[in-house]
């Protein structure tokens, strides 16, 4: 089942297209990293996905064909928006009560136990908590709904490294336990390789790449060799760095017999490296054909 399916999805604000021609089919069970610079269209896509805004053109559905914004979708998707919006004047206890009353299913016992473990007292006002605690509170509220999809908009941007680690550890543990799918947007690339297993790169409102991380890594190599030598014509060069005598090429392999000629160095490309290269590339790349053995 696909957790998200879009077909030529687009959203226009006034005269500008914040998102256009977005076609995705993302299977469930992954942590999808939605990566791109500020203003790329990540928040727009997420807002459409959770039903906060509508699409101008195209189709979109979640969780295997459910319309976005429908009661079934609202029940199954939990969203933590940018800057973790919480009612600052409400106590933690009141916030739990509020969330319970706004949902059909809410695991209050889980939420209270988690907050106890984190040392967040229920009588404190949400606005008085530290940034990390607010993030954990927002995440707890989302996870206590036992959603099938968790959507996070730049969740770790305001957090210090320790808080960031704890936050992501909680998300991953929930994935391991509940079979949760996660879509997470970020404009940073740090720790991408550790947390994401599906990557969607987006820039200027256009999806530049979307593929499982395993496929991406299997399909690319960084080769180093002398300038001017005949390259394998089957290589699709994504990015090249050349000086007088030596060049490095980030290439996408096409077939089974791609190999590195003698004298050339070759290494696997890192996920962050690949993301940067595809974000920089000016032309829209061809879709990535999945490697059979990785399925």
């Amino acid at each position: 089942m696909n957790i998200l399916e879009t077909e030529a999805l687009g959203r226009r604000y006034g005269g500008t297209w914040a998102l256009r021609d977005c076609s995705l089919a993302i299977p469930e069970g992954h942590l999808v990293a939605l990566v791109g610079p500020n203003g790329a269209g990540k928040t727009t896509l997420l807002n459409i996905l959770v039903g906060l805004t509508g699409a101008t053109t195209g189709n979109v559905s979640v969780l295997g064909g459910i319309p976005v914004g429908s009661p079934a979708a609202l029940d199954a998707i939990a969203f933590v928006a940018q800057d973790m919006p919480l009612y600052r004047h409400l106590t933690v206890a009141d916030t739990l009560h509020l969330t319970r009353n706004l949902n059909h299913d809410f695991d209050g016992a889980y939420a209270r136990a988690r907050l106890r473990d984190l040392g967040i007292a229920e009588k404190h006002r949400a606005g008085k908590l530290s940034g990390g605690q607010q993030a954990q509170l927002a995440l707890t509220l989302a996870l206590a709904r036992h959603p099938r999809l968790l959507v996070l908009d730049e969740p770790t941007a305001p957090l210090d490294p320790l808080a960031r680690h704890d936050f992501m550890a909680t998300v991953m543990a929930a994935m391991a336990e509940d079979g949760l799918s996660v879509i997470l947007s970020s404009h940073g690339l740090a720790e991408l390789e550790r947390v994401a297993d599906y990557l969607v790169l987006i820039a200027h409102g256009v999806v530049r790449l979307d593929a499982p991380v395993d496929d991406l890594v299997a399909r690319h190599r960084v080769v180093t060799g002398p300038v001017g030598e005949q390259n394998d014509p089957r290589w699709q060069v994504v990015e090249s760095t050349a000086a007088g005598a030596q060049q490095h090429l980030l290439v996408r392999l096409q077939g089974p017999n791609d190999h590195v000629p003698d004298g050339w160095e070759s290494r696997a490309a890192g996920v962050e490296e690949l993301a940067l290269a595809y974000l920089r590339e000016s032309s829209v790349p061809t879709p990535l054909v999945p490697v059979e053995a990785s399925r």
Binding site: D166, A169, A173, M175, A176, E191, R194, D197, D214
Partner: peptide, 18 residues
């Protein structure tokens, strides 16, 4: 256990499974 490894290291459970 997958869940414990994931909670300690903050890594994707699919990575541990792999």
């Amino acid at each position: 256990k997958v869940r414990e490894a994931v909670a300690d290291l903050a890594i994707n459970p699919n990575t541990v499974l792999k």
